[in-house]
């Protein structure tokens, strides 16, 4: 098993290094087929008043959760986070909270970039090719929903 694999493994990086010095690493993918597996985003710190919005949970459930935190939970501020496609939903939740509070709540939005890791696993284990990882960026939003301090 090791004999046919070794020469393959040694040739692939060489050819890749020879003509992809400055170009994108995507060229390296050509010889072998890979399955692309997306890892979950890096675990982020989570306080009691952090809400990470996703696209799987029902919109109303997530909105209700935020309302519960602000009204029943006694939090003066909560943080609503959204990544990628969920940015829209995070904004929607924040704006809905603000609208239903009759202007008592304020929003402060921050944007950021999150680095995501994809795993590339060779489709055919006999062919030359080792598991690789690739990083890409995605946009994220962090919205602070808070009652402004009375001054």
């Amino acid at each position: 098993m090791m004999e046919p694999r070794n020469p393959g493994m040694s040739t692939v990086p060489q050819t890749a290094a020879a003509h992809t010095d400055s170009s994108t690493p995507a060229v390296e993918m050509d010889p072998v087929e890979y399955t692309l597996r997306k890892r979950l985003p890096r675990k982020l710190p989570k306080r009691r008043n952090d809400v990470y919005v996703n696209m799987k949970t029902d919109f109303r459930a997530q909105l209700a959760r935020c309302q519960k935190l602000l009204e029943g939970g006694g939090h003066r501020e909560i943080c609503v986070h959204g990544l990628g496609l969920a940015i829209n939903r995070a904004i929607n939740i924040a704006l809905q909270l603000q609208a239903s509070s009759q202007g008592a709540l304020q929003l402060a939005a921050n944007t950021s970039t999150v680095e995501l890791v994809d795993d590339l696993e060779p489709e055919d284990p006999d062919e030359a090719g080792e598991p690789m990882t690739r990083t890409r960026n995605n946009s994220a939003i962090h919205i602070k929903v808070f009652y402004p301090d009375p001054q």
């Binding site: 990628g84 496609l85 940015i87 829209n88 904004i91 944007t111 950021s112 970039t113 960026n137 946009s139 994220a140 939003i141």
Partner: peptide, 11 residues
Amino acid sequence: RGVTKTITCVE
């Protein structure tokens, strides 16, 4: 649906 793109541009 342009919101995500806006943020990406800014980033």
